[in-house]
């Protein structure tokens, strides 16, 4: 299993490094813009810099979609999945390793965003922390939803670009559908109370579906 995890981590190391750079880029750019437009008031600088987590979060979702998209389909364009198929590890071991690496990476991404928000929102009171919990829930459930769909598509599509693209389209559709139903049904003010568990359940369902699809697929 260690060898498989090493392989899955190393095979996409460019994505991990590039994704991390993309996630950190908004902080750097916001800090740069804030410094250039700094007029002597500390809160002005902080006000501009506080835009970074939101932008970073959106980029993170894109990175999560790519992580899920390449997880399985990433080995199909160069047909290295065939080389792996000739080796003794079972498909269950192969998928477990991919899941561990994928889940590990999105956990790091979520924690990174949550930590940045914690620092920037200056969580000092209970009220702020309660408000942040809702935001944290939205970030994590969205990440699970995106990863789940990307993983599902990755399990049967031949190219990670297709799985990532289809995942983004599906998640956008899910968000739009949720917003439409939410507005139509008039469910009240805190839509995150519904969105967070729903997105989590759907995301986990897609992830399990991806595992099932991979295990029952004859490859190559």
């Amino acid at each position: 299993m260690r060898a498989l995890i090493w392989k899955d981590f190393m095979a996409n190391r460019v994505l991990w490094i590039g994704g991390l750079a993309l996630i950190l880029l908004p902080y750097l750019l916001c800090a740069l813009v804030a410094t250039i437009s700094y007029k002597g008031q500390a809160h002005d600088w902080w006000y501009i810099f506080a835009n970074a987590p939101g932008i970073s979060c959106m980029i993170s979702f894109l990175v999560v979609a790519m992580v899920g998209g390449v997880a399985i389909a990433g080995e199909r364009p160069d047909r290295s999945s065939e080389f792996l198929a000739y080796l003794p590890p079972s498909r269950a071991a192969i998928i477990t390793s991919k899941a561990m690496v994928g889940i590990g990476v999105i956990t790091v991404i979520c924690l990174l965003n949550m930590f940045a928000l914690y620092v920037i929102e200056e969580v000092k009171t209970k009220e702020v922390l309660e408000r942040m919990k809702v935001v944290y829930g939205a970030i994590c459930s969205s990440a699970i939803l995106i990863f789940g769909f990307a993983w599902l598509y990755s399990s049967f599509l031949k190219n990670p670009i297709y799985s990532t693209g289809l995942c983004i389209a599906t998640v956008l559709l899910f968000w739009m559908l949720f917003a439409f139903v939410y507005d139509t049904m008039n469910w009240g003010s805190n839509h995150m109370v519904i969105f967070t568990p729903l997105a989590t359940v759907v995301g986990i369902g897609a992830f399990v579906g991806g595992i099932f699809s991979y295990l029952h697929r004859v490859e190559p």
Partner: peptide, 18 residues
């Protein structure tokens, strides 16, 4: 379709583990 990004030594160590 051996992993093209690996070095020969890495492929050998990877396969040896199985």
């Amino acid at each position: 379709f051996i992993y093209r990004w690996m070095r020969v030594g890495q492929v050998v160590r990877f396969c040896r583990s199985f």
